[in-house]
Amino acid sequence: MTGRHWRWVWMACALLTALPAAATTLIVEAALDQDIFEPVLRAFQQANADIQIDYRDRSTIDVEQRARASDDPPDVVISSAMPWQVALSNDGLAQPLTTPEAQQWPQWAKWRNEVFGFTFEPIVIAYRLELAAAMPPPSTHRDLLDILTHYRQQLDGKVVSYSPYSSGIGDMLFQQDARYTPRMWDLVAAMGAANTDFRGTTRSMLEGLTAGRYWLGYNLLGSYALVWAQRHPEIIVQVPNDYSLVMMRTALIHRNARHVDAARRFVNFLLSKEGQFVMAGETPLFSVRPDVIGPYTAQRLRDEVGDHLYPIPVDATLLAFVDPLRRQSFLKRWNRELKILRQPAD
């Protein structure tokens, strides 16, 4: 809410300073918490007084629907659902950005110069201090499977993870996990046996952890969890030591953007050194650029947790995750695996 107030203040300032120039209103549909993103928006407004930002903070599904709606198209689409963003581009709903910043952007973090991954958010494990007292705290996926197997009674109903049903991110993360190792299904089976709860957002998982409903959370967005842990010392955030997925928020300029110039300036700002500097210093989104220095940069994260960061590449492979039949068969197996270990217990 404070962010929203700030926004109005800044918009008023922008209006006052840019009265002679015709102000453009840039429509940004974003699946990215405004509280977290506010410093970046503010920095952009400071640098571009002639552009007002109409920031619409929504869920990934809403953002996707708005982007595909034919009437009133947004100018910029930001989402954490990487497959959907790439699908938008593949369906011809994005337009390329050809500024030097866009050209020099790392190849693994962009697609067709249309979809740009501009953050670097590790996927983490979060647990309460009680868990560390009762059992060895997990630092790898194997540890996770071990404690789920050995401390099933203690953890029963106290584990939470992303739901592949109600969240695009959850679905993507588990599918990506399954791509890397078939042991993921053992983990799913173990989670099923522990009657794991599946939630739609990282925030609700964190709230549950703080409230003590859960002891252990798996596949949380590190950007949110790290900020949360700073204010809630009872929660420990662990970046898995064997391998850690990294998710990127992606931005694209809509094909039918009404304020193309403003949209280009905005996306370019997200990729620029200034924008990334704000992200590295004032948000937990982590800067992708290696030339940016701050507490939250991909480089620093690599230095801390080692070389086992696996960013989900922004490329055509993501399109497989949105195939309905693949999703259907994935969920079919998901349901089967969840029940495999549970049945004899019942």
């Binding site: 011809g92 055509a316 497989a320 039949l325 994935f330």
Partner: peptide, 20 residues
């Protein structure tokens, strides 16, 4: 029943990042 292989789409996209 088919799980569209991600690699197939990557091959299809080629290094020119075609729409697939």
């Amino acid at each position: 029943l088919i799980e569209i292989p991600a690699s197939a789409l990557e091959v299809l996209a080629t290094r020119w990042q075609e729409r697939v």
